Simulated assay, not measured.
Amino acid sequence: MKGLKLAVAILTLGTLAIASPSEAKNLSQNQQTQPSQIIAQTPTPPASNSTVSNHLKRGIEKFQSKNYSGAIEDFNQALKLEPKNTSAYVGRGAARFLLEQFQAAKSDFDTALEITPDIAYAHYFRGFTNYALKNKPAAIADLRKASTLFQKEGNQELAQKADSAAKQIETN
């Protein structure tokens, strides 16, 4: 499976202004999240034991309950046991994004994409993270890549939303 279903669907983007990092967070918060699907949708090496899966599951549960710091702790534990677990990197990145730790979030998405380059959701979230970091060209590139990957996966709805977000950023 190629994507992380820690999905966000953009509502109405309206006019995007490159003013503050909180705007990117607000943009992403106007979207629906489905963190329970992280493990099922993200390509990751096989878990060495059930302990990694347990940490991931607890991280997802904490994320769902908006305990982002707690989720980060569990994703950290999973990464201690399995340093190349892309699910943990993307989950931790999403939690860090919502805590407005944008540079740390970007680092997590970068690492996930170094391990597995074609994770649509990692590109998608990194696009919004780059936007928060005021890197408009990188945000547009990531969102376009996400759109292409979503199309390959057959997820036309998210492909369109990623493309629309890239166009909105580009015109501002």
Results as ranks from 00 to 15, higher is better:
4 L>S: 10
167 K>G: 03
151 Q>D: 11
74 D>H: 10
139 A>G: 09
89 Y>S: 02
75 F>H: 02
123 H>K: 09
61 E>A: 12
21 P>W: 05
95 A>G: 00
27 L>C: 03
111 T>E: 15
18 I>D: 14
170 E>S: 10
19 A>V: 15
122 A>G: 02
23 E>R: 15
118 D>I: 10
109 F>Q: 02
8 V>R: 05
132 A>M: 03
152 K>T: 11
55 H>E: 09
126 R>N: 06
124 Y>P: 01
86 T>N: 09
93 G>K: 01
84 K>M: 01
118 D>A: 10
150 F>G: 10
38 I>N: 00
60 I>S: 04
148 T>Q: 15
159 A>T: 07
77 Q>Y: 03
47 A>T: 13
29 Q>T: 13
16 L>N: 05
143 L>Y: 05
129 T>V: 13
159 A>N: 02
141 A>F: 11
61 E>Q: 11
163 D>F: 00
172 N>Y: 09
42 T>H: 02
134 K>S: 08
145 K>L: 09
146 A>W: 03
171 T>Q: 14
33 T>R: 08
90 V>A: 03
10 I>C: 04
97 F>N: 01
53 S>W: 11
137 P>N: 11
122 A>N: 03
2 K>V: 13
19 A>M: 12
66 K>C: 02
5 K>T: 06
61 E>L: 12
82 E>A: 08
90 V>C: 03
71 A>N: 08
115 I>E: 07
132 A>Y: 01
33 T>S: 14
17 A>M: 11
59 G>M: 10
152 K>L: 15
80 K>G: 02
53 S>R: 13
96 R>T: 00
59 G>P: 06
100 E>Q: 13
169 I>C: 07
85 N>M: 03
144 R>L: 09
78 A>V: 03
28 S>D: 07
2 K>M: 13
114 E>I: 14
24 A>S: 12
25 K>G: 01
117 P>I: 11
71 A>R: 04
78 A>T: 07
33 T>P: 08
85 N>F: 02
17 A>F: 08
168 Q>S: 12
52 V>Y: 01
139 A>N: 05
66 K>D: 08
32 Q>L: 12
94 A>H: 01
62 K>H: 06
63 F>D: 01
166 A>H: 01
37 Q>A: 13
137 P>W: 06
29 Q>N: 15
119 I>Y: 04
45 P>W: 04
117 P>S: 13
9 A>V: 11
101 Q>Y: 07
65 S>F: 06
158 L>R: 13
97 F>T: 00
76 N>Y: 02
104 A>T: 07
142 D>C: 11
35 P>A: 03
127 G>A: 04
154 G>T: 13
